Amino acid sequence: MSSSEDLIVRTAARWIDRGSRLDTGALAAEVGVSRTTLFRRVGNREDLMGDALWLMSDRTIASVTHRWDKANGPAVRDPAGMLRCLWVMREYRAAIAGNKGMRVLLEEEPTVALRVLTDPHGRVQPRVIAQHVDLFARDVADGGFTPRVDLDTLAFAVVRLGEGFLYADVLADRTPDLEAATTLLGALVDTDRGL
């Protein structure tokens, strides 16, 4: 990604994070390019939204992982016995659910937001799945986790189930229940502990 593309995506992520509607014309003016140039560099509005949401997701996972490493070092389980990957995923979902800008986006543009967030060929979900594969692989490599299925399949299942709970209010007119998500994902991932 070029520096101008990076600036556009970072600016879009800031807009979403603060709860502002992603207006490509106004955003182009803010970063000092024409709307045509913006489209040439980052694609259409949904492409830009996807890259911005991915950047927000990536930063959130990095922040949460850093918190784990600072508190627990290289340990694969916390003092209560929770796998590092499950702890990171729980904290990640909580951060996403608590993000004001994400809530505004889901309330004001639910169809677009869900399409961008959950498109299997889009700019968010495939990257989130790959990121989850990396989380699982780290726990496998450090000797604390032996999955029952391949990591790609497990990551796909975990991300899709997590989305179902995280976006339950939009997908199924249900209140998001992150505690239930943590319990179910724990049972799915850490089968030896019977969570």
Rank of each mutant, 00 (worst) to 15 (best):
H66E: 12
V64E: 00
L83G: 01
T60Y: 02
A141E: 07
A97E: 03
G73R: 04
E109A: 13
R67I: 03
D142S: 13
R77A: 03
D51R: 14
V124C: 02
L53C: 14
M56W: 06
A80T: 09
V88A: 00
V133E: 13
A75V: 10
R67T: 08
T60F: 06
D78C: 07
R41M: 15
C85F: 09
V140W: 02
D142H: 13
I61C: 05
T37P: 07
L105W: 11
W68R: 00
R59N: 12
R115I: 01
M102R: 14
A75N: 08
V133W: 08
V140S: 02
T111E: 12
R45P: 05
W68N: 01
V124M: 09
E108V: 15
D78T: 12
P79M: 09
L48G: 02
T111Y: 05
Q131W: 10
L135K: 10
R115E: 07
N72Y: 13
T111M: 11
R59W: 03
M102H: 11
R67C: 03
P74F: 06
R41H: 13
T60D: 02
M89Y: 10
D139Y: 08
R84A: 04
T36K: 09
S63D: 13
R41N: 13
W54H: 08
G98M: 08
P110N: 02
A62Y: 10
W87C: 05
V112Q: 05
D119C: 14
A75T: 09
E109M: 10
K70M: 08
R40G: 07
R138G: 01
D47K: 12
P110A: 00
W87F: 12
M89K: 15
T60C: 12
M56Q: 12
T111F: 03
R127A: 00
L114M: 15
A141P: 05
E46F: 05
R90V: 04
R115Q: 06
D134Y: 12
M89C: 12
D78H: 11
N44I: 05
G73D: 05
E46R: 15
T60E: 04
A137D: 07
A75E: 05
L106D: 01
D142E: 09
L48I: 08
R123Y: 08
D69V: 14
L38K: 01
D119L: 15
A80V: 13
L48P: 01
R90L: 05
T65H: 10
N72T: 06
V128D: 00
Y92K: 13
G101L: 05
L53Y: 05
A113L: 08
Q125I: 11
L53K: 01
L53A: 12
T60H: 03
V88K: 00
E108K: 15
I129W: 01
L48V: 11
P74W: 02
V104R: 07
T65Q: 11
F39S: 10
V104A: 03
F136E: 01
E107H: 15
D51F: 13
N72S: 04
N44C: 06
D78P: 07
E91Y: 14
L83P: 06
V76E: 00
P74R: 13
A97T: 08
E107Y: 09
P120N: 06
G122D: 01
N99M: 11
A141L: 11
A80F: 02
Y92C: 03
R41L: 15
M49A: 04
G101A: 05
T118M: 15
D51L: 14
L83C: 09
D69C: 13
R93I: 08
V64L: 05
L135I: 09
A130H: 14
P126D: 00
R40I: 12
W68G: 01
G50S: 00
R123I: 12
